[in-house]
């Protein structure tokens, strides 16, 4: 391998090592230590005493996660919320991506910009804006009351509904873009052939367009699902107290209980749970690249 080629490949590896592997090892290490009231607030795995080097691994943090159903409930509830949000995202994003891909080249770029443009504002501010829109005397309720459709505000903020709104809103571009790229590559002659053979438009869509855009749907779903599972800001700002998500449980272990070892164990288990969809995605991607 030439030096240039090696360095080009090396950059992503270096990035992964620095920002994924090293933090992972640190968190993994802490998950086997014990809580302590000191700086930092956990014990060392290696201790040197009486000319003996002792390695003490505490598996208690992991077994602890199974003694209390809180963690399992939080994992399941996170997966449920992320899953439903991903499906809504897919249903909303598909028509958008379809229209953009079918639009004339000149309007296409403008439409794409409209999808990406909101991301130029800070994520936090965009989520905070939803507080103003959804709250009891916020935009939607005031408007509906002004129209006379309702006379009591509908409680939308601090509910699971608001969490779905937040996740779908924030992650929609991640669903639209892969779908759009995929639909752009769609060979028009296949659609024409189906039409020529007598298929009505809905059938062309169902049996040609939809199956051929599977790769885009999977890529988009992964990009939405994986970050949604560990989402903390959206449920914290828009969700109610009963919205149980693993990101919040992790926060509580870390900040309220000051138990960094258990918090690390929660994070490691969450990573393992996410590894399954990530590896599925990776396998699918490699297969796509090969074909």
């Amino acid at each position: 391998m030439s030096w240039g080629r090696r360095s080009v490949i090396g950059v992503p590896y270096l990035w992964l090592t620095l920002f994924f592997f090293v933090p992972f090892v640190i968190v993994f290490k802490i998950s086997f230590s014990e809580m302590d009231y000191a700086i930092p607030p956990y014990t060392n795995l290696l201790t040197w005493a009486d000319e003996q080097l002792t390695l003490s691994l505490n598996f208690g943090n992991y077994t602890y996660l199974f003694t209390d159903d809180l963690y399992i409930r939080a994992y399941l509830s996170s997966i449920r919320i992320a899953g439903i949000a991903t499906i809504i995202c897919l249903l909303v994003a598909y028509p958008i991506a379809y229209v953009i891909a079918r639009a004339p080249a000149a309007t296409r770029n403008a439409l794409l910009m409209l999808v990406i443009l909101p991301s130029w504002t800070s994520f936090l501010i965009r989520i905070y804006a939803w507080v103003g829109i959804l709250k009891n005397n916020g935009l939607i309720n005031n408007f509906l009351m002004w129209l006379g459709i309702i006379d009591q505000p509908i409680a939308m903020l601090n509910t699971e509904f608001a969490v779905y709104v937040g996740i779908v809103y924030a992650y929609l571009p991640f669903m639209v873009l892969p779908l759009y790229t995929n639909l752009m590559k769609l060979d028009n002659s296949l659609l024409e052939a189906a039409a020529d053979l007598g298929a009505p438009p809905w059938k062309v869509f169902m049996s040609v367009t939809l199956p051929l855009s599977k790769a885009g749907m999977i890529a988009g779903s992964m990009l939405v699902f994986i970050p949604s599972v560990g989402e903390f800001i959206i449920p914290d700002m828009l969700g109610g107290a009963e919205t149980l998500m693993i990101g919040k449980v992790l926060w509580q272990e870390f900040f309220n209980n000051r138990d960094w070892p258990v918090a690390s164990a929660v994070a490691i288990v969450m990573l393992l749970l996410l590894l399954l969809p990530i590896s599925l995605f990776h396998r699918y991607q490699t297969r796509e690249l090969e074909s």
Partner: peptide, 19 residues
């Protein structure tokens, strides 16, 4: 003590998420 803090926070989580 940390054990009591943990119980308090655990009870608190239960209270918050019960509805």
């Amino acid at each position: 003590p940390p054990k009591v803090t943990r119980t308090m926070n655990r009870v608190w989580t239960d209270i918050r998420s019960s509805n």
